[in-house]
Computed example of a mutant assay.
Amino acid sequence: MRLLYVITIAYFAPPVLAFGPAFVSRSNRAGLAIFSGPPSTEHDVMAVSAPLKFIGPYPCLALRFPNLGTSAQRSRNETGVSLDFVVDTAANTNTIQGPVVAELQLKSTGQFALPGVSATGSIPGGETFLLGDTQLDGMGPDLFMIDLTASVLPVSNPAAAGVLSLAFLQCFPGGVEFDWENRQFRFLSETNASEKEGLQMIPIERQPITQLPLIQITINNVELTALLDTGSPITIIHPDAAKRANIDVQNVEANKSRNPFKSLFSQNDSQVLTIMGGDGKPTKLYPTKSAVEISMFGESVVYVGQVPGLAALQVKSPDVILGTDVLKRRPKMILRVQQNEMWI
């Protein structure tokens, strides 16, 4: 399987946190985050569960839109479309790919997401469109959300229709559980003591410009600020932070073999990764020479490099992008955005 090392971080200033989508259970459309007779009462907590699927290394949620149709469906007077979305804690605006908007003939809301920055640098703003009522794909006809919107922005969505952002996760008062081990999402109306049993609470601080989630971690016993990023399959440490934590990177050039066939048989996954900046200039990310000790998550080989987009965050810029390669080392994570809490 070929991994697409695309970091889907979308930062926007000022923050565009669209709280339009309402969470509904059964057919109740009365308001935001309403559960009216839950499909699941596991642990006495009203919750809705859905498969956590992966497209490559990216965690995705499949949504069905009963009132939308492709051009072929419209010619037969039919509706009902299923789309995969990357669930990205380091994006603050839902996004949708332009070709999807055109094919489904989505209606504009008349609003625009403001220009901002992504992992690769500055990006322009984009028009916002109405996706409308949604269901959880394959989970029956009950409505899941109403009036879901997303903006067309030039951010990378590897093989997915778009990105569900922090604005989406904010809609659930009890939080959203990422069960990595069982590959399942749980959308919670509340979180009681039994849900948190055996888990550790980590307070979340918001980045002042974007409101994106930051947590404090230690790497090699040095405290660093990390951006919680389920849209990144790798963990990246800024070079200055790596120096403070006494982290060495692999001397890849010195380790290169003259055997042109070595890469075909090598079992070593460590490699230099390259991301392109908005100015077209490449930025290299170098793997650490050995595994580093990350508090609460154990040892892991991570990458060191300067992500172009982070330079634009002049206030409280994170030292680390904490990706799913590290986050999945814990069996599950409950993200309670409204309470600024992360439980692992």
Rank of each mutant, 00 (worst) to 15 (best):
R2E: 00
L3S: 01
A10P: 00
P15F: 10
F19T: 01
F19G: 00
V24K: 08
A30H: 06
E42K: 07
A50P: 00
K53P: 00
P57H: 02
L61T: 01
F65H: 01
P66T: 01
G69N: 04
G69H: 06
R74K: 07
S82K: 06
L83Q: 03
D84L: 09
V87N: 02
A91G: 03
N94Y: 11
V101N: 06
V101W: 13
L106W: 04
Q111K: 12
L114Q: 10
S118H: 07
G121F: 12
I123N: 08
P124K: 13
F129M: 05
F129W: 15
L130F: 08
M145C: 02
M145H: 11
L148Q: 09
S151E: 08
V152C: 04
N157Q: 11
A161C: 06
V163K: 09
L169D: 03
L169R: 12
V176Q: 12
E177M: 14
F185Q: 08
L188C: 10
L188M: 15
L188P: 09
E195S: 08
I204M: 15
I204R: 13
I209E: 14
L214E: 12
L214G: 04
I215E: 02
P233G: 03
I234C: 04
I236E: 08
I237Y: 12
H238E: 06
A241I: 07
A242S: 06
N251E: 10
S257I: 09
N259S: 02
Q267F: 13
N268S: 09
M276S: 09
G280E: 14
K281H: 12
P282S: 09
P282N: 10
T283N: 14
I294F: 13
F297P: 06
V304E: 13
G305Q: 15
V307Y: 15
V307T: 13
L313P: 07
L313E: 12
L313F: 14
D319S: 06
D319N: 12
I321T: 06
I321E: 08
M333G: 01
L335C: 05
R336F: 04
V337D: 04
W343F: 13
